[in-house]
Design a protein around this nucleic acid. Structure first.
Lengths: 138, 138
DNA sequence: AAATAAATGCAATTTAAGTGCATTATTGTC
DNA sequence: GACAATAATGCACTTAAATTGCATTTATTT
């Protein structure tokens, strides 16, 4: 069991009630969540507060935003890979066109790609669209 | 010089004035364009018409939409690769965080990635963020 | 406990995307 | 070429997500 309060503090995030709740909520989700998803997970909550909370998490490196092509931003926890750090945001994402869910394939790294002269890579974003194992029934 | 009218017809698109103009406009652009970019390129034009035109082009396989993470859709012509077809939309895109431009790196294909059992790939989308050769000055 | 700084709640704005419908233009048929 | 049928266009409007302003509340520092 992780000490959520400590995790937030470690990232210079003040552990307020809502932040603790949201962090736990994100922890429990297998898939990336939209702001709407998050909003639905809370009884009484201001959309704006949730928005700013997730943005704070993002800025502080707790979550990453995923653009899966649906036009709505989704967010998922940065789940540290055992032994590694920092390059963890170079994993790829899978978007299921059937159930509309998007998930991190944390141990599928994006292969290195060499670009033409002059191009400097800062970040990479790979989204694979298709049918997930739940929906393909395989 | 390509016969634009014929290109449209080949894709079952009626060659109206606006469509011919927009196709030429897209041809002349090195980078992917937002709807706003396109709108700015025309003197008198209805946003809606341009919107529906680009969507028609997309449906008929003349252009592809690019989601570069800025939250605004961009569009670029499907420029057929000599000798190949169909798999041409598996090239990758580069988004420059300096000039905000996005371009197709047509001859950089997305490498094959093997997914866990049950996952079926239908489409892939790779966007590399960084600094382009114009902005890096290299 | 007071002063300071940050987080929250609510209202409102911005912006892109998309729809409905009447009008206009284009195409196919006679 | 005229006419009917079909599609494209223009304009107004709606939807939905993202984002900001500001007053209020809560937490932190001294």
């Amino acid at each position: 069991m992780v000490n959520v309060e400590q995790v937030l503090k470690d990232h210079q995030i003040r552990p307020t009630a809502i932040r603790l709740l949201m962090y736990r909520f994100l922890t429990e989700s297998e898939v990336a969540l939209t702001l709407n998803d998050i909003e639905s997970g809370f009884d009484q909550s201001e959309r704006t507060t949730l928005y700013r909370t997730i943005k704070t998490f993002e800025k502080k490196g707790l979550v990453h935003q995923i653009d899966d092509g649906t036009g709505v931003a989704k967010y998922a926890l940065d789940r540290p890979v055992a032994g590694k750090q920092a390059e963890q945001d170079l994993h790829l994402h899978f978007h299921c066109t059937s159930c509309n869910e998007t998930l991190c394939l944390t141990d599928h790294k994006i292969p290195h790609i060499s670009l033409p002269k002059g191009f400097v890579t800062e970040d990479m974003n790979l989204v694979i669209k298709g049918v997930c194992e739940k929906c393909s029934g395989q």
